[in-house]
Amino acid sequence: MRVCVIGTGYVGLVTGACLAHIGHQVICVDNNEEKVKLMKAGRSPIFEPGLSEIMQSAIESGNIEFTTDLGAGVAHGEILFIAVGTPPLPTGESDTRYVEAVARGIGTHLNGGYKVIVNKSTVPIGSGDWVRMIVVDGVAERQKVLVTAGGTSSGEVVLEKLPAFDVVSNPEFLREGSAVYDTFNPDRIVLGSNNHKAIAMMKELYAPIVERKFAADQSLPPVPVLVTDISSAEMIKYAANAFLATKISFINEVANICDRVGADVTQVAKGIGLDSRIGNKFLQAGIGWGGSCFPKDVSALVHTADDYGYEAQLLKSAVSVNGGVSENWALQI
């Protein structure tokens, strides 16, 4: 299939390179010219085990290209991934300006056949309809320019037929340092859309991964594919990270109690981790959350809850345990 990945940060570059590796024709778009030159030379701008080798192999096979030309990428792709950053604002909510810019840019270039626009970026819950609206705005802006350029003097804007497209939420669950492995060996693939054609195209795209053709253990059953509405898919990403963050905060809370009663938290963690309902992952006391995803996503989820009039007390407590009690907790994470 023909794929365009817009944004070559951590998620975008890994996604594009891995999709090219399994046989798709991929164009990766980035507005940083120096970065694009680097990637064209087969060099990864980020360190991720196995990524450079996959990039070089895909370049040699002709399955991947890198460009600053968004129009070329949109024209090429049947499936267009939005994979730009959504960093946290001081309020705790996600900064979606880059997603908005890309969605509008897609609209200004959208033409021709049916496209599936995929939110790979971690976006606020409910963003699917918002992205669609921004794309439509971009289409309208382009058509207005064309009408003006055509010399229309009546002042009326004649809109063309809206190009056919649908928006899909496809959250990523990649870990830094094992992102290539995680792409080929996922626990699940989540697809959010109510459009059957869009879902069918996404299933075709991921078929080699679902069928474990590039997995470390190809004898395992197919990867579960969960199809939901867009908002539920967006929520799954936040809920998963919030749960793991809460699990870390929980064992750190237990560690504080262990210090006071003379218990060994490592033995306690081992004991509860052997319970199949709990598991032993994310029970290493004292390490805190670390990284960027957990604090950013928990903060965004709490902010969303506040927007809808609900106080997420458990999540706020998890933040306090992780970073220390503060009235300005949202500014700390």
Rank of each mutant, 00 (worst) to 15 (best):
101 A>K: 15
175 R>C: 11
101 A>M: 05
235 M>Y: 06
227 V>M: 02
196 H>A: 15
292 S>C: 12
281 K>M: 12
228 T>A: 13
181 Y>H: 15
259 D>Y: 11
249 S>I: 07
83 A>Y: 03
164 A>I: 04
11 V>G: 01
76 H>I: 13
60 E>W: 07
248 I>G: 00
289 W>A: 04
292 S>G: 14
276 S>A: 10
281 K>F: 14
258 C>E: 07
328 N>F: 05
118 V>I: 06
179 A>N: 09
123 V>G: 01
109 H>Q: 14
95 D>L: 11
25 Q>F: 09
78 E>K: 06
297 D>Q: 11
27 I>Q: 13
122 T>V: 09
98 Y>G: 07
148 T>Y: 08
238 Y>K: 03
261 V>F: 06
194 N>M: 12
259 D>W: 07
219 S>N: 11
187 D>L: 07
324 G>F: 06
142 R>L: 05
221 P>F: 13
99 V>F: 04
203 K>T: 15
34 E>C: 08
9 G>H: 07
300 A>E: 02
318 A>L: 05
220 L>G: 00
330 A>T: 15
258 C>M: 02
305 A>C: 15
307 D>R: 14
312 A>L: 01
269 A>N: 04
254 V>H: 04
100 E>M: 10
23 G>V: 11
138 G>S: 11
170 N>L: 00
85 G>F: 02
104 R>D: 15
325 V>G: 05
192 G>Y: 02
46 I>N: 00
203 K>W: 13
292 S>F: 14
151 G>F: 10
282 F>L: 10
198 A>Q: 07
121 S>D: 09
272 I>H: 13
272 I>P: 05
308 Y>A: 15
57 S>T: 11
266 T>M: 08
48 E>P: 00
332 Q>K: 12
152 T>I: 13
80 L>S: 09
47 F>Q: 08
62 G>W: 07
75 A>S: 12
28 C>S: 11
23 G>N: 01
230 I>R: 01
8 T>I: 10
200 A>C: 09
300 A>T: 07
311 E>G: 00
158 V>E: 13
264 D>S: 07
64 I>S: 01
189 I>A: 12
45 P>S: 08
172 E>D: 08
316 K>W: 00
195 N>V: 11
151 G>I: 11
39 M>L: 14
320 S>I: 04
327 E>Y: 06
324 G>M: 04
157 V>E: 14
185 N>D: 13
124 P>T: 15
170 N>A: 05
40 K>D: 12
240 A>V: 08
22 I>M: 08
286 G>A: 05
87 P>R: 09
314 L>N: 01
51 L>N: 08
291 G>K: 14
1 M>N: 10
49 P>M: 12
20 A>S: 12
201 M>N: 12
34 E>F: 07
57 S>M: 05
56 Q>F: 14
119 N>W: 00
90 P>W: 13
222 P>S: 04
312 A>C: 10
321 V>N: 03
223 V>L: 04
260 R>I: 14
105 G>Y: 12
9 G>P: 01
25 Q>T: 14
